[in-house]
Simulated assay, not measured.
Amino acid sequence: MVSRRSAAVVLSSLLLVGSAWGWAPAGQAHEGRHRGGVLCQGDSTSTYDPPLTSASRSTRVHTDAWYTCTVEPGRTVHATGSLDGVSPSASCDGLSNPRITEVVKYDDGEQSLILYDQGTTVRTAGVLDVTLSGRVAEGRGKGQSARRDVLLALPQQLPTECLSSGLRGNNGQAQLVIQP
């Protein structure tokens, strides 16, 4: 039997995938000349320093991601992402005004350097959707917009760590979209 929380995560994931596939990645994946879209999906693990609590404060964020990416129609590659940055106002309820950099290394030898300068957090039905928006500064997709969504399943109440020692990290499902 599927819990309501699991159903909400699956439904939200399907909506994200559907919206991203609507633009159908296209283009050539040749060094710096790639002008089509890229769609990556996979697991994401984040750590926070200091740990997140119910009070907002400046927090360093580090995230590791493992993606499968569609870089052109019918062509997928594996990739890893490493995100680092600071949210000047972070709590268990989300991140505000993050300044985060992601380096995506594709297994075909290409890379993307993404600078995120906007972020939102939406909590509904036990699911926290953290969205980062920015631009690709270098490599595959240079000059194109980037959007990263991470869906985190949360208990209906704040985790007990938020009220005591703080939440040191979390895991979720990530989707990265690079598009013209």
Rank of each mutant, 00 (worst) to 15 (best):
V77Y: 02
T80N: 10
E161W: 10
G109F: 01
S44E: 14
A24S: 11
A7C: 10
G169T: 03
S133W: 10
C40K: 03
P73S: 04
A8H: 06
E102V: 01
T59S: 01
Q118G: 10
Y48R: 02
Q41N: 14
H34N: 11
M1W: 07
E138T: 05
C40Y: 03
R135F: 15
V61A: 07
Q175H: 06
N170S: 12
R168W: 13
V136I: 13
N171T: 14
G126V: 01
Y67V: 05
L158G: 00
V177F: 10
H30K: 13
V104Y: 03
T160H: 12
D129R: 07
S19N: 08
G42N: 06
N170W: 15
D117Q: 08
V177A: 10
L14E: 11
S12T: 11
R123Q: 14
A174P: 02
P155F: 09
R123Y: 15
I178H: 04
V61G: 05
L39W: 00
A55W: 10
R57G: 13
S133T: 13
R33N: 15
S164T: 12
G81D: 06
C162V: 07
L16R: 00
E72P: 06
G74T: 00
G27T: 04
A26N: 14
G18Q: 02
R148L: 15
A29L: 14
P159I: 07
N97E: 15
Q156T: 09
P159C: 05
L167W: 08
G37M: 06
L52W: 04
D108N: 05
R147Q: 11
R148F: 13
R168F: 14
R33Y: 15
A153L: 07
G126T: 00
P180E: 14
L167H: 03
A26C: 13
Q28R: 13
A26S: 15
G109R: 01
E102K: 00
G74A: 00
L151I: 04
S112W: 11
S145P: 01
T160D: 15
S56G: 10
D108W: 01
A7Q: 09
S87M: 02
T80F: 13
L132H: 11
W66T: 12
G139D: 14
V150T: 08
G172K: 02
S145M: 09
S58D: 14
G166N: 06
L132T: 04
L16N: 00
H62W: 12
D129W: 07
S56C: 08
V122M: 07
A7K: 09
